[in-house]
Design a binder for these strands. Structure first.
Lengths: 238, 238
DNA sequence: GCCGCTATTCGACCAAAGTCGAATACTGGC
DNA sequence: GCCAGTATTCGACTTTGGTCGAATAGCGGC
């Protein structure tokens, strides 16, 4: 594939033929701006692509399938819990993902790493801290805030790990269908939203249920809920 | 408004004349025994009634509708989250409920009190501590372990409070139907379990959905999940 | 007792969900 | 180029879900 390089996109790094992209997915414009500053420092000259919803995030990933980094807010329109993270990891395993969230509990951070995030950055973090995190991730390591020591208890509980691996098997369209189902929509409404026939939605629904190992939509939402930010954990046995 | 005062002290003293009951609901027989010791100390001569599931708990409440105290484990067969607590409070508002759980996070404790519990006792507590908690509750106060100061932030988040008041309006049978729905069962299976026709289950389901303000079973499940032990909270706005 | 209220039950009817088989299109591997 | 596998789409048919109207039973108030 021959490349015609636009002179304008000529980077100072000759070794890197194309300018690499960094995706920032956050529904808060102001916060995206702040993140852009951090990215500019950590990855000089990066092409920054923005998304403000799960939908636009995956659209961006389609057109730029191999970004250098993805900064992902856990709480965007269309996202429930670790849903988008799991899906992104499943379809773009090569992309390191830095999870951004206003939540700061250690449990959430460890679950994020358990779901394949390369780092977890609280929204309260300083620019310098974020830059440090991005650089650490770009060098191939994982990163957590100093407050949350990167201890051993990184294992997800059994039900959540199970749910994750099953959800990772969904195709993009199936994933969208499940997301809308988890919002309580009817097949008819999902069909209208996606611009396809109701029969198609039903076919996707059948595929989703089969991949999740359940037999009706109620059980499907129950399983999807296990990836919610706070999920149902059984009372630990005494 | 004009008062027809029902002299509560009188009712109380009359009731005191008979042996009062204390209900212990926990699916762990050994732990029930330990709780019995505590109850015997805090309420000498109390008649102790045991339940090992949500179903048997409400059966016991039917036959002893006015116990002096209810000790309720959050994690019994048939219970999901604060479900049983909310239902018990709604139908037997006069009964003070002491919630028992292996979970110890402050958040859970405050949510329990927010749902109308009189006290929250961690399973790790000593007998003496439990006895103290029971006595405090019997004197009309609420109680939390010393580790979780009884601070002001007792308010449930909006969605959960809404869900609670709606769930409190359900009749016992409707509550059972919703519980089984939340376990992913079909109407047909629920009907078999309850020993009624499928048409009856559908009628209950319609009533449940109307009371919850939703239009299909998927949304009903989603709403019921808000009372899960760990529930989905929106990322706090920055 | 009598009345109104609610909980529970059910059958018949219409709407939504789910299954099956199949067509089209795209992507890698040979 | 050709083939195999998969993603996406759809229509026809069966099963499940949900509404409506209605009957029965129990409970508390007057």
């Amino acid at each position: 594939m021959a490349m015609e390089l636009r002179p304008q996109s000529q980077a100072w790094s000759i070794a890197r033929a194309m300018k690499r992209a960094v995706l920032i997915a956050d529904d808060h414009p102001l916060f995206r701006d702040a993140l852009k500053l951090a990215v500019a420092q950590a990855v000089p000259g990066a092409q920054i692509i923005e998304a403000d919803s799960v939908h636009s995030l995956f659209a961006a990933l389609e057109s730029h399938p191999d970004p250098e980094l993805l900064l992902l807010d856990l709480n965007m329109p269309g996202a429930q819990g670790f849903n988008a993270l799991v899906q992104a990891r499943a379809h773009f395993p090569a992309v390191p993902i830095v999870v951004i969230s206003a939540r700061e509990d250690r449990h959430i951070m460890h679950r994020a790493l358990g779901h394949g995030a390369a780092a977890f950055v609280p929204k309260s973090a300083s620019i310098d801290l974020i830059v440090g995190a991005l650089r650490t991730v770009l060098s191939g390591d994982t990163w957590l805030p100093p407050s949350a020591a990167q201890d051993a208890s990184l294992t997800l509980d059994e039900g959540e790990a199970e749910a994750t691996s099953r959800l990772a098997a969904l195709t993009p369209q199936q994933f969208r269908v499940l997301s809308m189902l988890s919002a309580g929509l009817l097949n008819k409404q999902i069909a209208a939203e996606l611009g396809v026939s109701e029969a198609t939605v039903k076919a996707h629904m059948s595929a989703v249920m089969q991949k999740l190992g359940v037999s009706n939509r109620t059980q499907a939402v129950l399983l999807a809920q296990k990836l919610a930010l706070d999920h149902v954990t059984p009372d630990p046995a005494l």
